[in-house]
Design a protein around this nucleic acid. Structure first.
Length: 581
RNA sequence: AGCCCUAUAGUUCAACGGAUAGAACAAAAGUUUCCUAAACUUUAGAUCUAGGUUCGAUUCCUAGUAGGGCUACCA
């Protein structure tokens, strides 16, 4: 139970007891720096209802609290703000009480993230997606919610055919092994080769008098890719085999990257398995007049009454589009997990409209679970040079970025000379931990809906509000614990103001975790950790400067608690904590 | 054209409608008898514009400005 909740509960009781007010929203927040107190109750909302002056209300509240138990040391009222200072004995009792897990029956949420195309490697945009999805999953689990992590793999369509055509043309019989490339990079290379050849052919056709648009439709290699897609849909054996081979290379590459990022999945859904289901559902909806058919045979949904447009669901030639398979995937997932309380889609905000449409269409079909679908959308990751475009080669490759981060962690650590006595293996593990800590924290600390400006050269700092700084603080605490194992009674400790501050921050963790869960926002956790670390460092510094020796056991205990909390919190972001660094 | 998102120190980020808008980086100045100086302490510096809602607005509403996205028989 945290302090804020205890206070809130008591005040609610007071309102009910004294004024028969059953529910009223009022604010409790940390007392601002320049005022005396620990927590502040904002009285303004109470004034018009109780019809007394703020100071009268404040006295009543304090008297009520004191009549129940002696927890208040002091208080003051400034304007409509009631600032309360708690007794040390109360703070210590809160600090000392073990957290009780609420193990109610657990709900199940499906969380979809990553969901790449299978024609090229993962890039920085995927990293934000993966980290968000993974972190939200961890936060859900922390809040006693079961999580099923899943993906939709876009393994079907013209894009993968492009890589296949290029591979036949330029690299037949080559393999990731023969070229010494990671599988996804290998396939991506042929996707790039396709585009180079395509551009060359288009240029040639334009020189021969074609318009730009015509040239794009008539480029030989594009026609070959289209033919291959048709063969794929007709289950041509050779094409299917090649398709399987290429995809397996890609999956192998993806797995390595997931492993590096320390994320995993409970299931995969493949578009090639779900698009037909989607098609069936659309046809069924057509027969029930939920959708309508245009003269050319294409099938549409009319969402104009809900403020959206008409949307295509099936092409005139009967083939499916993006949203068709999404309908099928959602349906299959619901069939697999009928008890799910919610399904969360993690995608970039350029798909906001798409998901708006998808959820409404599923609702129109009449599936009651449409209300359980949620979209976790996040802003783009931009580079200083502008938007990432794979066609223009301005993407930041995920693997390259991670390697670069490890290199940087290495050079910084070595220049500080703190790891000299480590084995090579330990050093490398540490560099990876630091590098990933930096990357993950840097991305997750930003509100998901905002865009991130990512400078690959200098944006990752190892000072200030960063992952490594938090890791470092943790390592220091661990070292402190190691040197001081004395376990004494600390019931008669006089707390310093900084210690009180830390205890109150510590006690707020569950509130923050719940809020982060509700808002699908790991940034709340990150900000909490940093605040805790900052307070702790300041406390640590003042303690050492005052030369409080011998180190009293309460300080060790407090440090230890802070360390524990930092670790728990950072784990919600998927960040490992090194014991030494 | 319509719809959606964003706008805060030089820069990157904070702030359930609450007090004097917080941090970090960069800039300037300081602190090592100390459990890891990858630290700590100072100083300077910001709410896009105009209205409205109310005790009170960075936050909510309206209009505008700027940036981005979406409005594909692409995924």
């Amino acid at each position: 139970m945290n302090i804020e909740n205890i206070l809130r509960k008591n005040i609610e009781e007071y309102l009910l007891d004294q004024y028969y007010i059953p529910s009223l929203n009022f604010d409790i927040s940390r007392t601002k720096k320049d005022f005396v107190g620990h927590l502040t109750i904002v009285l303004f909302p109470l004034i018009p209802i109780i019809k007394k002056s703020p100071s009268d209300i404040a006295f009543e509240i304090v008297n009520f609290l004191n009549s129940k138990s002696e927890i208040i040391q002091d208080f003051n009222v400034i304007q409509g703000f009631l600032n309360i200072s708690f007794k040390d004995s109360f703070l210590i009792s809160v600090f000392d009480s073990e957290k009780k897990e609420n193990k109610n029956q657990k709900e199940l949420f499906l969380i979809e993230f990553s969901s790449p195309n299978t024609n090229k490697p993962l890039h920085l945009g995927h990293i934000r997606n993966i980290l968000l999805g993974d972190s939200v999953s961890r936060i859900f689990q922390h809040n006693s919610i079961n999580v099923h992590k899943t993906q939709i793999i876009n393994d079907r369509g013209i894009h993968i055919c492009k890589s296949m055509v290029a591979w036949i043309k330029f690299g037949n019989d080559s393999s990731p092994e023969s070229e010494g490339l990671k599988g996804d990079h290998f396939v991506g290379k042929y996707y790039v080769k396709y585009n180079e050849e395509f551009d060359r052919q288009v240029k040639q056709l334009v020189l021969n008098g074609f318009s730009e648009d015509e040239a794009k439709k008539n480029a030989q290699i594009f026609i070959e890719a289209q033919e291959m897609l048709l063969k794929w849909e007709a289950s041509d054996k050779d094409v299917i085999n090649l398709w399987k081979k290429m995809n397996s290379w890609v999956y192998e590459g993806f797995d390595q990257t997931y492993k590096k990022l320390n994320v995993d999945f409970d299931s995969m859904y493949y578009e090639s398995n779900t698009y037909l289901t989607g098609k069936d559902i659309v046809l069924e909806g057509l027969s029930k007049d939920v959708f309508f058919k245009k003269e050319d045979g294409s099938i549409w949904v009319d969402l104009t009454s809900q403020g959206l447009d008409e949307k295509l669901l099936l092409r005139s030639d009967g083939t499916s589009v993006y949203i068709t398979q999404d309908i099928g995937t959602a349906y299959l997932r619901y069939k697999d997990h009928p008890a799910m309380k919610g399904m969360i889609y993690t995608t970039g905000n350029e798909q906001d409209y798409h998901f708006d449409v998808l959820f409404k269409v599923i609702g129109l079909i009449g599936y009651p679970w449409s209300s359980k679908l949620k979209h976790l959308s996040y802003g783009m990751v931009d580079l200083p040079s502008g938007k990432m475009k794979s066609r223009e080669g301005t993407v930041v490759d995920a693997d390259d970025l991670i390697d670069q981060m490890v290199e940087k962690a290495k050079s910084i650590s070595e220049s500080l000379g703190k790891t000299n006595n480590y084995s090579d293996r330990k050093k490398n593990d540490l560099y990876k931990t630091i590098a990933l800590g930096a990357l993950k924290y840097h991305i997750l600390k930003v509100d998901p809906k905002k865009r991130i400006l990512f400078d690959p050269n200098e944006s990752i700092d190892f000072n200030g509000n960063t992952g490594p700084f938090i890791q470092y603080t943790y390592a220091r605490i661990k070292s402190l614990e190691k040197k001081n194992n004395n376990n004494q009674d600390f019931s008669k400790v006089n707390l310093s103001e900084k210690e009180r501050e830390i205890i109150i921050i510590l006690s707020q963790f569950d509130l923050i975790a719940r809020s982060a869960c509700k808002n699908l926002n790991p940034a709340l956790i990150a900000n909490y950790i940093y605040e805790l670390v900052k307070s702790y460092n300041s406390f640590y510094q003042s303690s050492t400067i005052l030369g409080n020796k011998p180190i009293n056991s309460f300080r060790i205990q407090l440090s230890s608690k802070v360390g524990e909390q930092i670790k728990t919190s950072m784990e919600l972001l998927g960040i490992d904590m090194p014991e030494r660094m």
